[in-house]
Simulated scan of single mutants.
Amino acid sequence: MLNHLSTFGILTDSEVNQVKQYLTSRTIQKGEYLITEGKVCQEIAYVENGTLRSFYTKDNGEEVTYCITFAGNFTTAYSSYITGEKTPESIQALSHAELLILKKRDIETMAANSTNWVKLLKFLAEQQYVEMEKRIFSYQKESANERYLELVKNHPDYIQNIPLQYLASYLGITPRHLSRIRKELSL
């Protein structure tokens, strides 16, 4: 995580090292939750190992996976984290996951003492917006085949470890349709 923070070129080495005092490790097993619907999110997790999915549940009980977070990335119930309101989403481990946790209060303490932290938080928020926009555009402009191929291209090591129903939901298609795509593409 410290190396990841350094790659942005915003924090000084001292500021990156300061993070160590606030980090806690957490391990969650496959099927366990980082956060569940109805809770208020007070932390950000960096995924060292494992894969997590973010999803919400429709009124009819159907779960819709809208985000898959792989190792080397941050995850949080972002709207809840920002607003302090209960989250409508859950974040669940798709595999054994090792996380590094930063509490919101500690991030706010670092931001209060360094404009670089404010710049980093702004940058990360902007990146989240850009990713969300790309995802929306991909649903509107690309076929399910194209979305699947993009996922295979970017995360070939993980793609086989995501259960079919979650992968299909993430792609906005049925498991049956995903099976057809895989067969057609021979992947």
Rank of each mutant, 00 (worst) to 15 (best):
M1P: 01
M1K: 01
M1T: 08
M1V: 13
L2V: 10
N3W: 02
H4W: 11
H4C: 06
H4M: 07
L5E: 05
L5H: 03
F8Y: 06
F8C: 12
F8G: 07
L11M: 03
T12D: 12
D13V: 08
S14P: 03
S14W: 05
S14A: 12
S14L: 13
S14T: 12
E15S: 10
V16F: 06
V16T: 10
V16K: 12
N17E: 15
V19Y: 04
Y22W: 08
T24S: 11
R26K: 12
T27K: 14
I28L: 09
Q29K: 08
Q29I: 11
G31R: 09
Y33C: 12
L34D: 01
I35H: 00
K39F: 06
V40W: 13
Q42W: 03
Y46S: 14
V47P: 07
V47F: 01
V47I: 10
N49R: 15
G50M: 10
T51D: 11
K58W: 06
K58T: 04
K58L: 09
E62V: 05
V64S: 03
V64G: 01
V64M: 02
Y66Q: 11
F70T: 10
A71M: 10
A71E: 15
G72W: 07
N73G: 04
F74M: 11
F74D: 11
T75S: 12
A77N: 05
A77C: 12
Y78V: 15
S80T: 12
S80H: 10
Y81C: 11
I82V: 15
I82N: 12
T83S: 15
G84P: 14
E85Y: 10
K86G: 10
T87A: 02
P88V: 15
S90I: 03
A93L: 15
L94S: 03
E98G: 14
I101W: 13
L102V: 09
L102T: 04
K103Y: 03
K104Q: 03
K104F: 02
R105H: 09
E108C: 15
T109Q: 12
T109S: 15
T109F: 11
A111F: 08
A111T: 05
N113K: 13
N113E: 15
N116I: 03
W117R: 09
V118C: 04
A125V: 12
E126P: 05
Q127I: 03
Q128P: 02
Y129R: 08
Y129E: 12
E133D: 15
I136C: 02
I136P: 03
F137Q: 14
S138A: 05
Q140R: 07
K141H: 09
K141Y: 14
K141T: 14
K141A: 08
S143T: 06
N145L: 13
N145Q: 07
E146T: 14
R147C: 04
Y148P: 06
L149Y: 01
L151P: 08
K153T: 13
N154Y: 00
H155S: 08
P156H: 05
Y158A: 13
I159R: 01
I159L: 02
I159D: 01
I162E: 02
L164F: 03
Q165D: 00
A168K: 01
S169E: 01
Y170W: 02
G172H: 00
G172R: 00
G172I: 00
G172F: 00
R176Y: 11
R176F: 00
R176P: 00
R180N: 05
R180C: 02
I181R: 01
I181A: 09
E184T: 14
E184F: 05
L185P: 04
S186L: 09
L187N: 14
L187P: 07
